[in-house]
Amino acid sequence: MSDQKIIQELKAGKRHKAFIQLYKGFPVVNKLIQSKGGTAEQAEDVFQEALLIFYKKATQPEFELTSSISTYVYSVARFLWKDEQKKKGLKFTDYEVENLKLENELEEIAQNEKKFQVVEEVLNSIGEKCLKILQLFYYKGLSMKEIARQVDLKSEKVAKNQKYKCLERARKRVQEIQIVNA
């Protein structure tokens, strides 16, 4: 699949095949991270985050690909790991040419993603059923009727109620964390 095709598919919401292609870029990122003091698991996490960021950028209407996707993803991964190392007070040196423009872009996105990571964790703690309902509604965009069917609830109304309960649960927890962190 060509780079252009991959982006096309992503924009069209056909993620699975495109993601498979993107995952082929893992080995080179893996090598980078592990050679800079990371473990295999950290490499996986960083790569996943890099793909997430790439996805978010690529699906924006004004996105223009200036290099190959694999180069882009690699740069994102490198940036993320560099950031990680910085937090730990460790230096990161390699001989890559610094792409300041990309780094500035990424800085902002990475910051946002970090905020959302906290929310992500909360969502993972509200319970499987709750998470599923919210996922089906907000991520998959299904109707309440369909959701009621998939989650095995009696009616559309019951599902709606349940969704609000789950949403409240998530909201409360996020607010708690925000208070703690404030």
Partner: peptide, 29 residues
């Protein structure tokens, strides 16, 4: 803002699931 964050968070969860599925497919294949 809170709602926006929640939706973004859900997107992350969903994307991660999709990514993991793709990784698995590639691996199996």
């Amino acid at each position: 803002e809170l709602q926006k964050s929640l939706i973004a968070g859900l997107e992350r969860v969903g994307l991660k699931n999709d990514l993991v599925k793709a990784k698995r497919s590639l691996f199996l294949r």
